[in-house]
Amino acid sequence: MTEQPARAPVPPFSREMAIKKVRMAEDAWNSRDPARVALAYTPDTRWRNRSEFLNGRAEVEVFLTRKWSTENGYRLIKEIWCHGDDRIAVRFCYEWHDADGQWFRAHGNENWVFDALGYMAVRHASINDVPIVPKDRLFHWPEGTARPDDHPGLTELGL
């Protein structure tokens, strides 16, 4: 098997580099491109997402394709919680609506473990969806694009 190139930043993470890694993940997820997002994970990545358990990039890509086929208007903000040499914990919120137009804000936490090349090997995600009315939405940048640099983060939004 051919070794993959490093996916900077790589462990051990400084706080600055961990924050950069979190923003890179946020930007990728906001693209809603399952193939692009899956490439950030090791080929044998292990996930727990809510009550689902996934193994490997192929399962991640299928999962994300299914997820984004039903979570319309998806926009995500991630914020670092803490980090270690090869681990990062984040909290996040994302807003989305279902086929009937009901909006939700999902609140969650993730724990990540990275390999030496900077690929995510393990992801544990706990997530709760809260119904919201459209006037309570807080994430208003164009769908499928990165959050603008001047858009407030979770702390600034009081989330």
Rank of each mutant, 00 (worst) to 15 (best):
T2H: 14
A6W: 09
F13Y: 13
S14N: 05
M17N: 09
R23K: 15
D27V: 00
D27Q: 02
D27R: 00
A28K: 01
S31C: 07
R32V: 06
D33V: 03
A38E: 02
A38G: 08
L39F: 11
Y41T: 05
Y41C: 02
T42W: 07
P43A: 05
T45W: 14
R46M: 02
W47P: 04
N49M: 15
E52F: 08
R57Y: 06
A58S: 11
A58C: 10
V60I: 15
V60K: 14
E61V: 11
L64H: 07
L64Q: 04
S69N: 12
S69D: 12
S69C: 06
T70R: 15
G73I: 09
Y74E: 03
L76Q: 00
K78W: 05
E79N: 10
E79P: 09
E79F: 02
C82H: 10
H83L: 06
H83Q: 12
D85F: 05
I88N: 00
V90G: 01
R91C: 09
C93I: 05
Y94K: 01
Y94V: 02
Y94P: 02
A99H: 05
D100Y: 06
D100I: 07
G101L: 10
A106L: 07
H107W: 07
H107R: 12
F114E: 01
A121G: 09
R123W: 08
H124R: 14
H124W: 13
S126W: 09
I127L: 13
N128W: 08
D129F: 12
P131W: 02
K135Q: 14
D136P: 06
L138P: 05
H140I: 10
W141H: 08
G144D: 01
R147N: 02
R147E: 02
P148T: 12
L157V: 01
G158Y: 01
